[in-house]
Measured scan of single mutants.
Amino acid sequence: QTVVIGDTTYHLNNPEAAQQIAKELAKKYGLKVVISGNTIKLK
């Protein structure tokens, strides 16, 4: 699972954790979560 935040890319072996982290950050910073395949992007 790949999480992309701005110009930073994180690789996590746990998809659920990756999605949870993405949701928390999106909520905290008012970002939009875009999931395509096994890549999660925060914009």
Score class of each variant (00 low, 15 high):
Ile21Ala: 04
Ile35Glu: 01
Lys43Ile: 15
Gln19Tyr: 14
Lys43Arg: 09
Asp7Asn: 14
Val34Lys: 02
Ile5Asp: 02
Lys32Phe: 09
Glu24Pro: 00
Gly6Gln: 05
Gly37Pro: 01
Ile35Trp: 05
Lys28Val: 05
Asn13Ile: 11
Tyr29Ala: 05
Thr9Ala: 07
Leu31Thr: 04
Asn38Gly: 08
Lys32Leu: 13
Pro15Glu: 08
Thr8Asp: 06
Lys43Gln: 14
Glu16His: 08
Val33Ile: 14
Gln19Met: 15
Pro15Asn: 08
Lys32Arg: 06
Leu12Pro: 01
Tyr29Asp: 05
Tyr29Ile: 04
Lys41Asp: 06
Glu24His: 14
Gly30Ala: 06
Gln19Asn: 06
Ile35Asn: 02
Lys23Gly: 04
Ala22Asn: 02
Gly37Ile: 03
Pro15Gly: 07
Lys28Gln: 06
Val3Ile: 14
His11Pro: 03
Ile5His: 04
Leu31Phe: 11
Thr8Ala: 09
Gln19Trp: 15
Val3Ser: 03
Gly30Asn: 09
Lys27Glu: 14
Val4Cys: 15
Thr8Tyr: 14
Lys32Ala: 12
Gln20Lys: 13
Val33Ser: 00
Ala18Asn: 02
Lys41Pro: 00
Gly6Trp: 11
Ile21Pro: 00
Ala18Glu: 01
Thr2Lys: 12
Ala26Met: 09
Gln1Asp: 09
Ala26Asn: 03
Asn13Asp: 13
Thr8Pro: 05
Lys43Glu: 15
Asp7Arg: 13
Lys32Met: 14
Ala22Tyr: 07
Leu42Thr: 01
Gln19Ser: 08
Ile21Asn: 00
Leu12Asp: 02
Ala18Lys: 01
His11Asn: 08
Gln19Ile: 14
Tyr29Glu: 04
Asn14Ile: 11
Thr9Arg: 08
Asn13Tyr: 09
Pro15Ile: 13
Gly37His: 05
Lys32Glu: 13
Asp7Val: 12
Ser36Phe: 11
Ala26Trp: 14
His11Thr: 07
Ile40His: 00
Glu16Val: 08
Asn14Trp: 09
Lys28Arg: 09
Leu31Lys: 05
Asn14Cys: 07
Pro15Met: 13
Tyr10Gly: 03
Glu16Leu: 10
Leu12Asn: 01
Thr8Val: 14
Glu16Met: 08
Ser36Tyr: 11
Lys41Glu: 14
Ala17Glu: 13
Gln1Lys: 08
Ile5Phe: 12
Asp7Ile: 13
Glu24Arg: 13
Gly30Ile: 02
Ile40Phe: 03
Ile40Thr: 00
Leu42Trp: 05
His11Ile: 11
Ser36Ala: 08
Asn14His: 08
Gln20Ser: 08
Thr2Ala: 10
Val4His: 07
Leu31Arg: 00
Lys28Asn: 01
Leu12Gly: 01
Leu12Val: 11
Tyr29Ser: 03
Lys43Tyr: 15
Lys32Gln: 13
Ala17Gln: 12
Asp7Pro: 07
His11Ser: 06
Ala22Gly: 04
His11Glu: 07
Gln20Tyr: 10
Pro15Ala: 13
Tyr29Pro: 06
Val34Phe: 10
Val33Tyr: 05
